[in-house]
Amino acid sequence: MIWVDTIVQGVLLGGLYALFAAGLSLVFGIMRLVNLAHGDLIVLAAFVILTMAGALGLHPFVAVLIAAPVMFAVGWLLQTYVLNRVLGDDILPPLLVTFGLSVVIQNGLLEGFSADSQKLSAGPIEAASIKLGPIAVGVMPLLTLVSAIVVIFALNQLFYRTKLGRAFRATSDDAVTAGLMGIRPRNVFAIATGIAMVVATIAALYLGIRANFDPTIGPARLIYAFQAVIIGGLGSLWGTLAGGIVIGVAQGLGAAINPEWQILAGHIAFVLVLLIRPRGLFPRAND
């Protein structure tokens, strides 16, 4: 029974990792850009929620409604004024710019908020749990997984059912020809990064409620997110969810054996999947 419990908790944790990863997956799918600052942007979003909640006396679930548009704007501005200028065949400039950004955000947050651990306080819901058969499941972890599924479902609908999603896919296929259709690739990219930051804000909400956070934890979140994306297969959002769950379960199992092995077990699962299926579990056909 303990194993079933461990796996269930791992699956729930995977929901959080999928939320970390969904924005990264979206941005990579559309503009082949790997944002090394993604983890730090999630942490930035957590601090935005914290500040909103503190200043306006709001519950985090309400504060996130204000933080999300703020982060959309951050993503939009970042893409328009910085990242669009470095996109191209050479992968070096975008990598180095986002790496620089990661360092700037991390240290900017350290300067503004100090290295102290913070937490978003959501009240009694944090400790609440429900019985699923013989297993007690925390309401917050369950809510995280459900949110991940909803977010990924919504992103898929956006991608395959809307005019904007059509423009995303067309631009991803061929930006020059998309221009001939009246699509402005740079605008499309800016909107995509804005949406990725909204997803990052949702991820930040659960990150901040479920555990302590401080300005330095961004890079580790980036690594989990990246592993989820690669395990799932580039360009597949449902694959990203599966990837997050694989990492979550592996970490859970590792921790059950020895608490020191939690993170290592996730990394090893990642390496194993990559050795067996180099293109991930659900690779996109035309990539």
Binding site: V82, L96, F99, V104, N107, E111
Partner: peptide
Amino acid sequence: TIYLIVLGLIGI
């Protein structure tokens, strides 16, 4: 930290 921020900004 300012030092690292400056380095990052110069790099960008």
